[in-house]
């Protein structure tokens, strides 16, 4: 259960908490609560295990927020960002600089200025899909295709960066 649902739960909790350390703690508590519950009684609908885990995780997070509000603590957002970059995902070892470089490579490889414009409007200017399609005179099929290919290529570049970060020296 931990191996199967651990990465997804960590992602979910990091997204909600914006705090990698807290997310790790909450994930641990989630599994503790779930395992205790499953030891004590049978889950009536086993297919709802995912929903149950999500529910426990979010309840723990809400309880934590209440506690934090009472203590009125403030988070060090820079430290949080740094920590969030360091743990949890499949591209852990890929730095922000490498991600930025990969996006640069991706943009450079796009076949037409229109596709570059499409991604720039969507990702940087946060324009919605319909607005981008209308402005550039493309249909949603073309939009989806450009986005899909961009993500595929970007994934390859991330994997390359990840491999480079993991190179081990042999004398």
């Amino acid at each position: 259960m931990v191996r199967r649902y651990g990465p997804g739960l960590l992602y979910l909790l990091k997204r909600r908490t914006r705090d990698a350390e807290l997310a790790l703690d909450l994930r641990q508590d989630t599994f503790r609560v779930a395992i205790e519950k499953l030891r004590g009684s049978v889950l009536e609908e086993p297919e709802r295990l995912v929903a149950y885990l999500r529910g426990v995780a979010l309840n723990l997070w809400i309880a934590q927020r209440r506690k934090d509000t009472r203590r009125a603590t403030t988070a060090d957002s820079d430290a949080v960002e740094l920590a969030a970059d360091e743990r949890g995902g499949p591209f852990d070892n890929v730095s922000r600089e490498q991600v930025r470089r990969a996006v640069g490579v991706l943009l450079g490889e796009l076949p037409t200025p229109r596709d570059r414009e499409l991604l720039t409007r969507f990702y940087i200017h946060d324009e919605d899909k319909e607005a981008v399609c209308a402005a550039l005179g493309v249909d949603s099929v073309h939009f989806n295709r450009v986005l899909f290919r961009a993500k595929q290529r970007f994934r390859e570049l991330l994997l390359q960066a990840e491999r480079r970060s993991r190179i081990r020296l042999v004398g």
Partner: peptide, 9 residues
């Protein structure tokens, strides 16, 4: 990551 990379760039 792609979204964040675009913003960063």
């Amino acid at each position: 990551r792609l979204r964040a990379g675009f913003k960063d760039l």
